[in-house]
Amino acid sequence: MSFDKTVGLLSRYYAAFNASDVDGMLQCVSEDVEHRVNEGGIRHGRAKFAEFCGHMGVSYREELKDLVILANMDGSRGAAEFVVHGEYLKTDPGLPEAKGQRYVLPAGGFFEIRGGKIVRITTFYNLNDWTRQVSA
């Protein structure tokens, strides 16, 4: 994989995210993708990732803005920085009650790429900042 192909892959992944196109996101990840989410566990496999995306689509409506995608020269690693503009739609267990609160949250993702697919996704954001925003 090359720098350009990795940037293209991550661009497609995030375009699918912003379009609420879970199938488009799933086309970008490997069958054995490892998904590491901030403040959470590790999900293994495309099916678990699809389940997570389905849950997120019910509980949150999000659009990523100010997206910057980076990659190393051989395309095996990538990263993205962005600002999440979201609305909290349905209460997530263990989190504050959802009442349609809006939030704006800086975040980022780190990726490992192999065989033209994303094999690892690691997402970071400040959960305390998000909780403060939806609790205000």
Rank of each mutant, 00 (worst) to 15 (best):
S2E: 10
F3L: 11
T6F: 07
T6Q: 09
G8E: 15
G8L: 03
L9A: 02
R12E: 13
Y13K: 04
Y13T: 08
A15Q: 13
A16P: 09
F17G: 00
N18Q: 07
N18M: 10
S20W: 13
S20P: 03
D21K: 08
V22H: 08
V22I: 14
D23T: 01
D23N: 12
D23A: 11
G24F: 05
G24D: 07
G24Y: 05
C28T: 03
V29T: 00
V29Y: 01
S30H: 00
E31M: 10
E31L: 08
E31Q: 15
E31R: 08
V33D: 00
H35Q: 08
R36Q: 11
R36P: 15
V37N: 11
N38Q: 15
E39R: 14
E39Q: 13
G40M: 11
G40P: 13
G40I: 13
G41W: 02
I42V: 11
I42E: 07
H44G: 03
R46N: 11
R46I: 15
R46S: 13
A47H: 05
F49T: 03
A50R: 10
C53N: 01
C53L: 10
H55M: 08
H55C: 05
H55S: 10
M56V: 00
M56K: 03
G57I: 01
V58S: 06
S59F: 07
R61S: 11
R61M: 06
E62L: 12
E62R: 14
E63Y: 14
D66F: 04
D66G: 05
L67A: 09
I69V: 05
N72A: 06
D74A: 06
G75Y: 14
G75P: 07
R77P: 07
R77T: 11
A79F: 06
V84N: 08
H85Q: 12
G86E: 06
E87Y: 13
E87C: 13
E87N: 06
D92H: 14
D92L: 13
P96G: 04
E97T: 11
E97W: 04
A98N: 14
K99Y: 01
K99A: 07
G100L: 09
G100M: 09
Q101W: 03
Q101H: 01
Y103I: 01
L105C: 05
A107G: 09
G109K: 04
G109V: 01
G109F: 02
G109A: 09
F111K: 03
R114A: 12
K117E: 06
I118G: 00
I118M: 00
I118T: 06
V119S: 08
R120C: 15
I121W: 07
T122Y: 06
N126G: 04
N126W: 04
N126L: 05
T131I: 12
T131L: 13
R132C: 09
R132G: 06
R132L: 11
Q133R: 06
V134M: 05
V134R: 02
S135E: 14
S135N: 04
S135H: 09
A136H: 13
